[in-house]
């Protein structure tokens, strides 16, 4: 999937994936897509909840070899 910005949050523990996601999102325009890579096991639930509650859209999540990839479209 195409993205406008990539955030590498691999190896970071809670709460850093959402803290950094929020920061990175701030640099995007509405409609642009942020791609996030994370390894924190809670990140999957965390980022889904974060996107829902902050008015952004989680387009897709994949998991490969313990790395979660998220695509979130800025609302």
């Amino acid at each position: 999937m195409k993205s406008d910005k990539l955030l590498d949050a691999k190896g970071l523990a809670c709460p850093m994936p959402i803290v950094n996601t929020k920061k990175a999102m701030g640099e995007l325009e509405s409609g642009q897509v942020l791609e996030i890579h994370a390894t924190d096991k809670g990140a999957k639930t965390d980022l889904a909840a974060w996107a829902k509650s902050t008015g952004n859209e989680l387009l897709e999540t994949t998991e490969e070899n313990g790395v979660f990839t998220f695509w979130i479209k800025k609302g």
Partner: peptide, 11 residues
């Protein structure tokens, strides 16, 4: 402080 930082990220 983890909750506080998380909440700040929730705007």
């Amino acid at each position: 402080f983890i909750i506080a930082n998380g909440a700040a990220s929730y705007d």
